[in-house]
């Protein structure tokens, strides 16, 4: 057993952390190799394994970074599976932003049955919850063709594409995308969608761990400095024990994420059992950490101006992304039967 990351991964994490602290843009991330770390060597990157994904997203979450790295990994993964090394290369270089449009209204967290359909070089339908589509240069869209789910490339600014974009609870944006005979390039079958979503789920979990670490540290700082009744509020045992519980739950969550990272490359049933175990636990813990952090801060944490606000929303949203606590609990039960 060895619970330390490799030298390379640690170096990447450290330099990513420093870069994010300075305020990084998309070009900085590409230059650092953050995007390359999401893909295997075969795909043109130098990572792509569970631990690579975990270290990158933990740092993004720690910094509360809203750049569309998850979208790059998820859409890029589907592009890699479709054999589009050219597009993956541009993506890793930071020259192309892409996002995956796979959700549809009425499905909640299920992947199907979808209704968006391809016909004669176009796709039509309604895609929901597409993250950071407003900035993307390419939409990777799932659609039915001849009864099979396939992947298509669509120009988000092309004809037949309408987007209704709002801010997202976790940061960034989220769009409802209507496709009306939008010109589409067929990329291939979508059989790898589940395994790519497994990696994306790990990314959301690791992101939440980083955010929880920051939220815990902020709360600790506040407990040490905020005084009421003449003492730092961290002297009140009522808060001390709750803070201790938060710290315990974060270490449990971190362990679940390590567990998932180590099983991401396994065959689907094993992998997905770990995906659902980790995501269910993370969903539960993310809510706990956000709620407890707000409560222990008192009124100040209710304000938009205080830096906790976007992080608390990010943790709240973590449960609503890619399957919530209950959805994954039910899936875990099914996969364990």
């Amino acid at each position: 057993m060895d619970f330390t990351h490799t030298e390379e991964r640690r170096m990447l994490a450290d330099s990513l952390r420093r870069t994010l602290e300075r305020g990084a843009d998309w070009g900085d991330l590409a230059e650092l190799g953050v995007l390359g770390a999401l893909f295997t060597e075969d795909e043109g990157g130098f990572g792509g394994h569970g631990y690579d994904i975990a270290v990158v997203f933990e740092e993004l979450g720690r910094a509360g970074c809203n750049l569309p790295v998850l979208d790059a990994g998820l859409a890029g993964g589907m592009l890699a599976d479709a054999g589009r090394a050219d597009l993956v290369e541009r993506l890793i270089a930071g020259d192309l932003k892409a996002t995956l449009a796979y959700g549809e209204p009425g499905l909640r967290y299920d992947l199907g049955p979808i209704r968006t359909a391809a016909n004669g070089g176009t796709v039509s339908g309604h895609k929901s919850f597409v993250t950071n589509a407003d900035e993307a240069g390419l939409l990777v869209v799932t659609a039915l063709e001849d009864g099979v789910v396939k992947v298509f490339g669509v120009d988000p600014r092309g004809p037949g594409v309408t987007m209704m974009t709002t801010p997202a609870l976790m940061g960034g944006t989220i769009s409802e995308v209507t496709l009306d005979r939008a010109p589409a390039e067929a990329l291939g079958p979508a059989e790898t969608l589940e395994s790519r979503l497994a990696a994306a789920t790990l990314a959301v979990c690791a992101d939440a761990i980083g955010t929880m670490d920051t939220v815990r540290d902020m709360t600790l700082d506040y407990l040490r400095t905020r005084k009421q009744f003449g003492v730092p509020i961290g002297k009140f045992q009522a808060l001390q024990h709750r803070m201790a519980d938060v710290a315990i739950e974060i270490e449990m969550a971190r362990s679940a994420v390590i567990n998932l990272s180590g099983h991401l490359d396994q065959a689907a049933p094993t992998r997905d059992r770990h995906v659902s175990a980790a995501k269910s636990l993370i969903g539960r813990t993310a809510h706990l950490v956000a709620e407890e952090a707000i409560q222990m801060h008192g009124g100040i944490a209710m304000t938009e101006e205080y830096a906790l606000a976007p992080l608390a929303r990010r943790l709240t949203a973590a449960d609503s992304r890619l399957g919530d606590e209950d959805w994954h609990l039910a899936r875990f039960i099914r996969l364990s039967a």
Binding site: Y109, S128, F129, P167, L169, I174, A317, D319, E325
Partner: peptide
């Protein structure tokens, strides 16, 4: 919040 599922994500 849980009941609305992914509709929790658009935040206006």
């Amino acid at each position: 919040l849980r009941a609305i599922g992914p509709w929790a994500m658009p935040f206006v």
